[in-house]
């Protein structure tokens, strides 16, 4: 069973639809036991980092998520919440990966949010198996995770500014883009995640 974490963070439905198109029935849940016993966990998210963290704390989910042992995929804000701190509301976060989430600097990236189809390159790891370097994915965000060295598993460049568009640490994976909205490349990535054995 795939657990999709429910913390009132919008757009869970499109993730469910994408999984359904791949023949996977997922369960939307904020139940501690269901999340910990799932075969894999998807942590979606659209919204504001500080309110999302408040909601996770309110539901007692912060500790649960960090102790997941099965494959874990954070999407968009979900990936950002896996980091330690965000400038979006100046909030501490899950600290699965040691990184600060920052707002794009308007003097480098004059158009914020970064919305649309952009390429991801230097692709590494099992999520990107069968996906061509430089494939297009759909992005929609104003805050970014900086380059992290070995934890960065994909890089995207916006106005020439490179940042982490996918990250990986042990069983934890995160993507800044929306695989559920990224056409063919996105569905290959989700399929790779569903087939992952950890």
């Amino acid at each position: 069973m795939t657990a999709v974490v429910d913390y009132n963070a919008g757009n869970v439905f499109s993730v469910l639809c994408a999984l359904e198109r791949l023949g996977e029935k997922a369960e939307v849940t904020s139940d501690r036991e269901r999340i910990l016993s799932a075969d894999r966990v998807i942590f979606p998210g659209v919204g504001y980092a500080m309110s999302a963290m408040e909601e996770l704390e309110k539901r007692g989910l912060a500790d649960v998520l960090t102790s997941v042992k099965r494959p874990f995929l954070g999407i968009c804000l979900g990936m950002q919440l896996m980091c330690s701190f965000s400038e979006e509301g100046n909030t501490g976060m899950l600290s699965i990966v040691d990184a600060d989430v920052r707002r794009f600097d308007p003097s480098i990236c004059p158009k914020i949010p970064h919305i649309g189809w952009n390429t991801a390159y230097d692709l590494k790891g099992p999520l990107f198996e069968g996906i061509k370097d430089g494939s297009y994915f759909f992005f929609d965000h104003s805050y970014y995770v900086p380059l992290l060295g070995s934890a960065t598993s994909a890089v995207t460049s916006y106005y020439g500014f490179g940042y982490t568009s996918a990250l990986e640490r042990d069983n934890f994976f995160g993507v800044q883009f929306h695989p559920e909205k990224s056409g063919k490349a996105g569905s290959i990535l989700l399929e790779n995640f569903l087939n992952m054995e950890i």
């Binding site: 919008g10 659209v46 919204g47 504001y48 309110s51 804000l77 949010p113 919305i115 929609d140 965000h141 104003s142």
Partner: peptide
């Protein structure tokens, strides 16, 4: 925007 983010 505060609740769901500017991106939407």
């Amino acid at each position: 925007a505060q609740r769901f983010g500017s991106q939407c």
